[in-house]
Nucleic acid binder design. Structure first.
Length: 312
DNA sequence: AGTCCTTTACTGCGATGGTC
DNA sequence: GACCATCGCAGTAAAGGACT
């Protein structure tokens, strides 16, 4: 497969009226999407926010791109210190879109409150998971209020180094152009399975805690993860509980293509074709019900522990 | 059938941020 | 400052497919 760089430090590569400037790695550069410095540049990595697959679909490769969760940031004057981080316009706008999708009735922005990286205690282990966001709706007549929100815009790609090396070669050009930067890079591809594998634990543990507590869980995920997930649950025909007592919501996030591209970030929106309101327990049962009896897996050629071939 | 290449899955490592 | 949870990076094994 192949991908191309879609955003470099929050600037889309598919326009030509203004060239993107490479930045000095291992320096302090503000992230366009959160209140804080770009963590990739800090680490000496190329600041790639998202890539585009051959199909044109966006795959987010930075944890902070969709909606960053850190509560603190490095102090500008004293790098050792951490100070509170605010919500950027971008975060607030994504969270508002999500709020408008999941909440019912009358409410305004001032009624919606969030807690980032909220600890979710695990009684059995004594440890803590972290919820990306806990969101509440404090409007007087709110019918729906307590929500645990997990964000996963994308994840990793295979052969990340290939992408990094390509971007590095762009940065070293005498006159770097956006056209060079957005060229297709052979081989690397999105790894949906990895993203999903890491989500499963969260589904099972956090989801259960929230469910027991009477709250609702919302997973805001990129469209590729949504589709990957949907394939393994679609046959179950989960009931649409949007107007009823849902406890789990899957929410796809996609590129907003309504406006012509301009210099800056790629706009994102809630994907109205990829929304599923359902029941947490039913959903988990569907996940664990995958596959059927396959007796053949216990037949065929085996190797005995003393090295002999055994056919069964 | 053998070789080469791509895709998929898994894992160790390390950086980071948060908590106590 | 120690400890822990999370997650991205990168390497590699295994599986699958194309081609000779």
């Amino acid at each position: 497969m192949a991908v191309s760089v879609a955003e470099y430090l929050g600037q889309r590569t598919d326009i030509d009226d203004k060239n993107i400037n490479p930045v000095q790695l291992r320096s302090q550069i503000p992230c366009p999407f959160m209140d804080g410095n770009c963590s990739k540049v800090t680490k000496g990595l190329q600041p790639i926010c998202s890539v585009r697959k051959k199909t044109g679909t966006i795959w987010i490769v930075c944890e902070h791109r969709l909606c960053a969760t850190p509560k603190t940031k490095q102090d500008t004057t004293n790098p050792k210190k951490r100070v509170p981080a605010g919500l950027t316009e971008h975060q607030s706008s994504i969270l508002w879109e999500i709020a408008k999708t999941v909440y019912r009735g009358e409410f305004e922005k001032e009624h919606i409150v969030v807690n980032r990286e909220a600890p979710v205690p695990i009684e059995e282990t004594g440890g803590n998971y972290k919820a990306d966001y806990i969101m509440r709706n404090l409007a007087p007549a709110a019918k729906i209020d307590e929500i645990l929100l997990e964000m996963q815009g994308g994840g990793e790609t295979s052969e990340t180094k290939k992408i990094s090396d390509y971007v590095a070669s762009w940065a070293e050009l005498e006159a770097p152009t956006n056209e060079f930067l957005r060229q297709e890079i052979a081989k690397p591809n999105s790894i949906e399975t990895n993203a999903w594998r890491r989500q499963q634990e969260q589904f099972l543990v956090k989801g259960n805690i929230v469910n027991q507590t009477g709250g609702k869980i919302v997973f805001a995920i990129g469209e590729l993860i949504y589709d990957y997930l949907y394939r393994r649950i679609s046959r179950a025909n989960l009931r649409d509980l949007r107007e009823h007592n849902w406890t789990l919501c899957l929410l796809g996030i996609r590129e907003n293509k309504t406006e012509a591209p301009t210099f800056g970030p790629i706009p994102l929106e809630v994907d109205d074709k990829r929304i599923l309101f359902t029941n947490y327990s039913t959903f988990v049962r569907t996940l664990t019900d995958q596959g059927g009896p396959e007796p053949a897996i216990f037949l065929g050629e085996f190797l005995s522990l003393d090295g002999e071939k055994v056919n069964i």
